[in-house]
């Protein structure tokens, strides 16, 4: 119980500190909104928060799902074939090294007006790299003995992949997925902020900016934080279900 209360306590303390700092310094709203200003901002735009929040959520999730699928394909190819690994790896590293902030305006122009496509595309592009790398490393570092115990019985490559390689790679995969979900979320918001006349929490943030509505901007930040935390913990729960065996803390 004490464990469950700790984060709540930390949040309350943080909000109190924030409110106090603004109050003591007597900052006006346009400099720094205080927590007590946020609730009215939420309330005024509650439908926009809900619908745009949903918008941001599904775009992130779809982008992440595509990233998982493409990342798995690349990871499996690179994990099993040394030639493909040597060929594809520099390509992926180079692709990943390009700061996505520079890609965002390009994609926004390329598919101008197609907000859903743009956003999902960026969320995918920014998040598939860690998945591909973790899966390929997990598969290529599989000890030969693990493969041999099944191969010696005449098991097919697919059986070996399904029964040994894949489950053994799951902890690395989920580690990467936790990084990827955060990245996908950042990607979604980057695009939503940049796209003119877009939707999503990023667009709401942008409209707060154009209207100098600072409490709204801060309220969006808080909403994003909550959504980000929720997404992250969904992955943590999935990890516990599918790769919980790798967690040795209890021993």
């Amino acid at each position: 119980m004490r464990h469950a209360m700790a984060p709540v306590f930390a949040i309350v303390l943080f909000l109190a500190f924030w409110e106090l700092t603004v109050w003591v310094n007597d900052w006006p709203n346009y400099k720094m909104a205080s927590p007590s200003d946020l609730w009215p901002a939420f309330w005024r735009f509650k439908w926009l928060f809900l619908t745009y929040g949903w918008e941001t959520l599904w775009r992130t999730v779809i982008g992440l799902i595509i990233a998982v699928m493409v990342g798995l394909v690349f990871g499996v190819l690179m994990g099993f074939s040394r030639v493909l690994r040597q060929g594809l790896y520099p390509l992926l590293v180079g692709f990943n090294a390009i700061p996505k902030a520079t890609v965002v305006p390009i994609v926004a122009l390329m598919f101008v007006g197609q907000h859903d496509l743009n956003t999902v595309l960026i969320a995918f592009m920014i998040s598939f790299f860690p998945i591909a790398v973790s899966v390929s490393v997990g598969l290529s570092t599989l000890e030969p003995e693990y493969r041999d115990i099944l191969r010696a019985l005449g098991a097919s490559r697919f059986t070996i992949f399904w029964k040994i390689a894949l489950p053994k790679t799951l902890p690395e995969f989920f580690g990467a997925l936790k990084v990827a979900v955060t990245l996908a979320f950042i990607g979604t918001n980057l695009m939503e902020i940049v796209s003119p006349h877009g939707r999503g929490l990023g667009a709401l943030f942008d409209s707060g900016k154009t209207n100098s509505d600072y409490p709204l901007m801060f309220a969006v930040l808080i909403a994003l934080a909550i959504l980000g935390i929720a997404l992250y913990y969904v992955i943590v729960v999935l990890e516990g279900i599918f790769a919980g065996w790798a967690d040795r803390q209890g021993e």
Binding site: E143, E145, Y146, L150, A152, P167, K168, A243
Partner: peptide
């Protein structure tokens, strides 16, 4: 490989996500 062969190595290579029983049944 033929299934009339059984093998054991220096490293027991048990699958960590399976119970002992499920490992033996593999």
């Amino acid at each position: 490989p033929r299934d009339i062969v059984g093998m054991a190595f220096q490293n027991p290579v048990l699958l960590e996500w399976r119970s002992i029983l499920k490992n033996v049944m593999l």
